[in-house]
Design a binder for these strands. Structure first.
Lengths: 172, 172
DNA sequence: TCTGAAATTTTACATCA
DNA sequence: TGATGTAAAATTTCAGA
């Protein structure tokens, strides 16, 4: 429950790493006005704290034969958490499901799915939704354009936004 | 327009890199049964082709004081592409907007937004939506739980799924 | 594919606040 | 005590043959 204290150096480093985590520490060091070992120690700490949760290569879906992005909203019959455990497990196990949120409002789940084509998606949808007796209905929207994709977060003192923002990191 | 040909080695390498792109090439080499220089050549090629579009650190929103994820569906008045250029520009410029898709169906845009709290989100929403005269309505859903997040793609011969899938990469 | 050179990451240690 | 910077050691990446 201890509050994580991050300073401007940490935010600056995070801002660079979430754009390109292969930038040499030496270059990061010069950009944030610190020495390379200091940068190294901070990065390790941020990883240990879980602030940096992963280091990954971002792949281009179209070039990998997965040009179709589908957004699906799902409504359940029985909204009690226990009733949708099976559904969640299936979602977790299915690599085509990139993202899944449990949301308030009219629908219960929102999913982002990647597929090769409509035939592929239909097979996936029937496997994922149609077979589930606890699913009242699901609505598929085809993404005609990906205006913005990524997981980049808005950090306090990077990229000239949020100048007056002094919020603190908090507990898990 | 030339078709990109990727073989099982490429997929195996991509499968590893999209989990952890800091794994040494030497270790990748042993895992995919190739020599380290061969792995290096392939990674460079995949980057040049754009199959690997970025190498990034994934940050934990909650630990950075952004525990709120909001999914927003937006409906426009004038659906002609030209009419929403200003909206798109604002979305691109706003770091709180993580993702934005132009979709078919009832709503026109779907956004994934990260915020510190409801107050923050309301300020953002009024700046992003309320001020826009071309927006008919927007519906916000709070993500109570992030079941699955990430951009990991399902690759042909990795992680024991899609055994019978032999699709090919295609043009940009 | 293998070997050596260049670069980077990592450690050790002295210094400052 | 905790964090930083300098310098040296260990890996890793990269370019030859």
């Amino acid at each position: 429950m201890s509050t994580i204290a991050l300073d401007a150096f940490d935010y600056a480093i995070l801002g660079l790493l979430q754009r390109d985590n292969q930038m040499p520490q030496r270059e990061i060091a010069t950009q944030v006005h610190l020495s390379a070992p200091a940068v190294q120690r901070r990065i390790r700490r941020l990883q240990d704290l879980g602030v940096i949760s992963a280091n990954v290569a971002v792949l281009n879906p179209s070039l990998l034969g997965l040009p179709l992005t589908v957004l699906v909203s799902v409504q359940l019959l029985d909204e009690r958490p226990q009733a949708s455990l099976a559904f969640r497990a299936r979602v977790q196990a299915e690599p085509a499901v990139q993202q899944c949120y449990y949301v308030t409002g009219e629908s219960d789940y929102m999913l982002v799915i990647t597929a090769a084509d409509m035939h592929d998606y239909q097979a996936l949808a029937s496997r994922l939704f149609a077979a589930d007796h606890n699913i009242r209905r699901y609505t598929s929207s085809i993404a005609m354009e990906r205006i913005k994709t990524g997981l980049q977060l808005a950090l306090p003192s990077s990229s000239s936004h949020n100048e007056t923002n002094t919020r603190e990191g908090i507990q898990p």
